[in-house]
Design a binder for these strands. Structure first.
Length: 405
DNA sequence: TCTGGGGTCCTAGGACCC
DNA sequence: TCTGGGGTCCTAGGACCC
């Protein structure tokens, strides 16, 4: 019994959603029809392209390139700031609509999901027709367009939704792989990024067809175990399941990082940033009721060189104070005294309970610190993240803007 | 010229143990 | 002077995704 999977992908999600919002607010122009982008704030050194209109694409503008470059390619480019809470809202709207069509939906990102339609054939005679119905409903009721890809597995569905955009339904069934997917350049294949594409080209592998027919042992010399997956993908083979939210577990790591307003060696300033970050990751971890065994700090210097350092704790924690102290210690041990552009904290190795040895008694101080966290979390749940700020942050100019994408 | 942020997964290499 | 091998755990760094 072969499976049927849908992949639904919002066209230029951030830009489309901002366009819909502006139109709702009486803005006269549809920014999808002009050269426009959603871009980060250059003054805060977040100056990259987050999304582009089809017209901007015609100018050669690419996602994730610098706004500086994008402006060079198109003089009259219109730039709009991102609005993450709006995007979350639009995303929820879309997913709650789609969920009615199958009990098995996997949310892949804020603007993409998979629907396993395999066991719905008794409900819908013509699944391709159903996809068109969904697409039209979304367009007329929500105001933005999607691409829907249909295939016998997740990979094919995802590749299909990427074919021609926007506002299209495409199929990529097993028997269509050779005609529809093999002619494409190898870098179009899911999970072939810049680095793999470069190596493949050097090996004379230019198309997905080339990759589908390459000798496994030859490829393994360059890609190790990954070669197997690459060749399977090139042949349209993928056994992975659509995993419903109820099986989707909590995050396996939680991280936060901030690009500073200027490159700095000011340790007092860095301490303030670390404290704020410890508060953020600690809170996220407490929210999923887990404790971290590993804490890491990540540093990016002014030359864009990244380095990191991590440590495994004897006793897992989710306390802001402990996270901060460990992170600061790691930082001081690692820092090369170079000018810092970006600093972050990452928590990983989660466990569900806080039980550890030395349980004869917890120190008074520790119990107090825990109850402080609980109190702060409660207040922030009620009044918002910025309602309580550690005293030492009140005088700092740390950028508190958060990215929810 | 200026280059975000938050995830997942994998691998190389060192430490350590038997 | 030449000197095992395997397993496991850990860290750092990289590739990829949106």
């Amino acid at each position: 019994m072969s499976r049927v999977i849908f992949h639904i992908d919002v066209n230029n999600a951030f830009l489309s959603w901002t366009a819909v919002d502006l139109l709702n607010k009486g803005y006269r122009m549809d920014i999808r029809k002009i050269p426009s982008i959603i871009g980060g704030d250059e003054s805060k050194r977040h100056g990259i392209v987050l999304a582009k209109s089809p017209v901007a694409k015609k100018y050669g503008i690419k996602t994730a390139e610098t706004i500086y470059m994008a402006k060079k390619k198109c003089q009259n480019l219109k730039i709009f700031p991102p609005n993450y809470s709006l995007y979350k809202e639009k995303s929820n709207q879309l997913f709650s609509y789609l969920k009615q069509f199958s009990p098995n939906m996997e949310i892949f990102s804020i603007d993409e999901c998979f629907l396993d339609m395999s066991n719905t054939t008794y409900l819908y005679k013509d699944l391709k027709q159903l996809a068109y119905t969904m697409k039209e409903y979304i367009k007329t009721h929500f105001g933005f367009t999607v691409n829907i890809g249909i295939g016998n597995n997740k990979l094919c569905a995802k590749m299909a939704s990427d074919f021609e955009k926007p506002d299209k339904v495409h199929t990529l069934f097993q028997e269509e792989v050779a005609s529809k997917m093999w002619p494409l350049p190898v870098e179009d294949l899911f999970m072939i990024g810049k680095s793999s594409a470069k190596k493949l080209h050097e090996l004379g592998i230019k198309t997905i067809s080339d990759l589908a027919h390459v000798d496994l042992s030859k490829l393994q010399k360059h890609f190790k175990n990954n070669a197997i997956v690459m060749i399977r993908h090139a042949n349209g083979i993928d056994d992975s399941e659509v995993t419903d939210g109820k099986y989707q577990t909590k995050n396996k790591n939680i991280s936060v990082s901030k690009t500073l307003s200027t490159d700095t060696v000011d340790i007092e300033f860095i301490k303030k940033v670390l404290l704020q970050e410890a508060e953020e990751v600690g809170r996220s971890l407490r929210k999923q009721n887990e404790y971290a065994k590993t804490i890491a700090i990540t540093i990016r210097n002014k030359d864009f060189f990244d380095y990191s350092h991590q440590t495994k704790l004897k006793n897992q924690t989710n306390e802001t104070k402990v996270i901060y102290e460990v992170a600061l210690d790691l930082f001081l041990k690692t820092w090369k005294r170079d000018y810092i552009r970006n600093i972050g904290i990452r928590l990983s190795d989660f466990v569900e309970d806080s039980h550890y040895q030395i349980s004869l008694f917890e120190s008074e101080e520790k119990i107090q610190s825990k109850s402080v966290d609980q109190t702060i979390d409660k207040i922030k749940d009620k009044y918002g993240f910025d309602s309580i700020i550690p005293a030492s942050l009140l005088t700092s100019s740390v950028d508190k803007s958060k990215n929810t994408r």
